[in-house]
C-alpha cells in the first residue's frame, strides 16, 4: 500500500537501458524516464522528506525503522531529462539480510540505478557512514545528501563537507529537507553524476585485517577474471565470504553482470 504511483509492468522494448530487463524484474517501469535514481539511507534521517522534496509527492514515513517495506516511486524533471526516483526502505546496513535490507540491497545491486543518493543524518554522521561505506562498495555512482543540517547546527555540530566529499570520493550536498534548503543543489548534482559530468572515485573499506583482506582480494581477482565487467567484485567477494546465499545464486544465474 506504499506505492505512490502504481504503474503497470509493461514490456519496454524502446528502452535504451542496458539494465532495463533487470529493473523490470524488480518491478520498476523505466519507460518514461531517462535516468533511474535510488534513495537509500538510515531510518530517521528524513529520507522520505528528501523524497517528497524532490518529487513533490507526499509520501508518509514515520519516525521508525523499516517503515517502507515496499518501495515508493516518484519522478522529477530537470534540464529536459526525466528522472525516476525510487525510495528504498530505511536500513542501518545492507549486511544483515533482513527483509527490508534485502529489498534495498537487491535494488542497488541488480537494478543498477544511474545514481544512488544516500541520505545521512548530519547530527549522527559516524553511525550513518556505516551504510554509506557499504553502498560505496556496491556502486560507483553515488551522492551523499547530508540532511538535517539544521538539527546538527542546533546541537553545535559542524561538518566539513568538502573534506568529507574528498574522503568518500563522491559529491556531498548539505540539505535541510524540511525547509527545502539544498534541494536544488542536490538535483543539480544528481544530474551531473547521472550524465557522467561528475565521476566518482568512491572510498573502499580499508581497515580489514590482513588475513581477511587477503581473502577478499584473492576472491575478488578470481571473480574479475571470470567476469571482467563486474563493477563491484570486492563487494561480491565479501558477500561470498559471508556465505550470502542470495549472492551465490545471483552468481549462478548470471544476474550480477549485464
Amino acid at each position: 500500500m506504499k506505492e505512490v504511483k502504481e504503474t503497470p509492468m509493461e514490456a519496454c522494448e524502446s528502452c535504451a537501458f542496458y539494465n532495463a530487463a533487470q529493473l523490470k524484474k524488480l518491478g520498476v517501469n523505466v519507460e518514461n524516464a531517462d535516468f533511474v535514481v535510488a534513495l537509500a539511507g538510515n531510518p530517521n534521517t528524513g529520507k522520505s522528506t528528501v523524497f517528497n522534496a524532490l518529487t513533490g509527492l507526499r509520501q508518509h514515513t514515520g519516525n521508525w525503522a523499516g517503515k517502507t517495506v515496499t518501495r515508493a516511486e516518484g519522478g522529477f524533471s530537470y534540464n529536459e531529462k526525466r528522472y525516476k526516483l525510487i525510495d528504498l526502505p530505511g536500513t542501518y546496513s545492507l549486511l544483515s539480510t533482513s527483509e527490508d535490507e534485502e529489498v534495498a540491497r537487491n535494488f542497488i545491486l541488480f537494478g543498477r540505478p544511474d545514481v544512488t543518493v544516500i541520505v545521512a543524518d548530519a547530527s549522527r554522521l559516524e553511525r550513518n557512514l556505516n551504510l554509506v561505506l557499504q553502498v560505496l562498495e556496491i556502486t560507483d555512482k553515488a551522492v551523499l545528501c547530508l540532511n538535517l543540517m539544521d538539527e546538527a547546527k542546533r546541537h553545535g555540530i559542524s561538518i566539513d563537507d568538502r573534506t568529507l566529499a574528498k574522503d568518500l570520493g563522491i559529491p556531498v550536498v548539505v540539505t535541510s529537507a524540511r525547509s527545502g534548503e539544498g534541494i536544488p543543489e542536490l538535483i543539480k548534482v544528481i544530474a551531473q553524476v547521472a550524465s557522467g559530468e561528475i565521476v566518482c572515485k568512491p572510498h573502499k573499506i580499508k581497515n580489514l585485517n590482513s588475513k581477511v583482506s587477503e581473502a577478499v582480494e584473492e576472491l575478488s581477482s578470481k571473480l574479475l577474471k571470470a567476469y571482467p565487467g563486474l563493477p563491484n567484485s570486492r563487494w561480491v567477494a565479501m558477500r561470498l565470504l559471508d556465505g550470502d546465499q542470495r549472492i551465490l545464486s545471483a552468481l549462478k544465474e548470471g544476474e550480477l553482470v549485464a
Partner: peptide, 10 residues
C-alpha cells in the same frame, strides 16, 4: 540475526 543487528547498530 541478533548478532548482525547489534553489530550494525554500532
Amino acid at each position: 540475526a541478533n548478532r548482525r543487528r547489534l553489530l550494525d547498530l554500532g
